[in-house]
């Protein structure tokens, strides 16, 4: 780090532009009559996803949880769904979220998430609105839709059917010196991130939908053959900028997925995190049929401002924070 580390990483010109882009986002939702909300960053519960590592902190004041452990949110999804269950209607928020272990050209462990929910919508309607938001903020571009399977087929891979051995063989063929001992989902992630994603979002906004059920996360599953998760991702200039779901509203199924996450975390030697009982209770009370999406605003701003590194759009990235 140079002796200039006190200075912002982004130029002042970029910070002015960033401020205008934040205004554009607010204007988009104001115009559409969506309610802006704020939910806690700090919770005694955490997202259980084995591929997310929440930052842990402690609070030992009045009202503290028994062990004093609290987690910085990795996304505002759970409390926003509680608002939906309480009858909020369409809601949006822009908030800082935190993810352990994520630092690189497109990652800062603290970043700005734009997240919104549309009761009564499915993921198709929401993909259209994501495209409208991207056009509003970063300018118009053509929009394309692909199923997850369609992206793998040209590589000779059946993303829903191939077993681990076949995917390992494909990884050895497609990726130089891949890591060994990956499970089926990690192999798909490897091939997607190394061979497919870099080519997406070039000259167009690319949506990927119909994910394998093992990657459903919090999406509902459509019982076709093979069954697919009603989840989508949005890519721009080789970067994933948004992830959305036609939201799972079945409390029993949600509890089973949380428990499966916990088992996977235990198997991998990761910390086992407290699941959000308030979310489960809200689902039990009734989450309206809805679609929701989380969008990495810093990455959208990178595209809008022509930045190659996330640090170019952040005042103080990790090493200067």
């Amino acid at each position: 780090m140079t002796d200039e580390a006190w200075r912002p990483a982004a130029s002042l010109e970029t910070l002015y532009a960033r401020s205008r882009l934040l205004d554009a986002v607010r204007g988009f939702f104001r115009e559409r009559g969506v309610l802006e909300v704020e939910t806690p960053m700090l919770s005694a519960a955490a997202a259980t996803d084995p591929n997310l590592e929440p930052l842990v902190t402690c609070y030992d004041g009045p009202g503290a949880p028994p062990d004093g452990r609290m987690y910085l949110h990795t996304s505002p999804e759970f409390p926003m769904k509680r608002l939906l269950a309480a009858g909020s209607g369409a809601i949006w928020q822009m908030t800082r979220v935190f993810r352990g272990g994520e630092r690189g050209v497109r990652h800062n462990p603290e970043f700005t998430m734009l997240e919104w929910y549309r009761p009564g919508w499915d993921h198709w309607a929401l993909m259209d609105e994501v495209a409208a938001l991207v056009h509003h903020v970063a300018g118009p571009q053509p929009v394309r839709f692909h199923t997850y399977a369609e992206l793998f087929a040209p590589l000779g891979i059946d993303a829903h059917g191939d077993d681990t051995a076949r995917l390992e063989a494909a990884a050895d063929r497609l990726v130089v010196a891949p890591p060994q001992g990956l499970d089926r989902e990690a192999l798909l992630d490897l091939i997607l991130s190394h061979c497919i994603a870099p080519n997406l979002g070039r000259g167009a906004l690319d949506f990927v939908h119909d994910f394998p059920v093992a990657q459903a996360a919090l999406a509902r599953i459509r019982p076709v053959d093979p069954p697919v998760a009603e989840r989508f991702e949005c890519y721009l200039q080789g970067m994933e900028i948004a992830n959305g779901f036609h939201e799972l509203s079945d409390a029993g199924e949600q509890r089973r997925r949380f428990a499966a996450d916990q088992d996977k975390r235990r198997d991998r030697g990761q910390s086992v995190l407290p699941m959000d009982e308030n979310l489960l209770a809200a689902l039990q009370a009734g989450l309206p049929d809805c679609a929701g999406v989380a969008l990495g605003l810093d990455r959208l701003f990178m595209v809008a401002l022509g930045a190659a590194h996330i640090d170019e759009v952040l005042a103080f990235p990790l090493e200067r924070a």
Partner: peptide
């Protein structure tokens, strides 16, 4: 290079130079 699909496994893609032969590999 740190590479991570949104909800998936993270990877580090690395270029390395062999200190004996000078050859670079990925």
């Amino acid at each position: 290079e740190f590479v991570k699909p949104g909800k998936g496994q993270a990877f580090n893609r690395v270029k390395l130079r062999n200190l004996k032969t000078g050859k670079v590999l990925d």
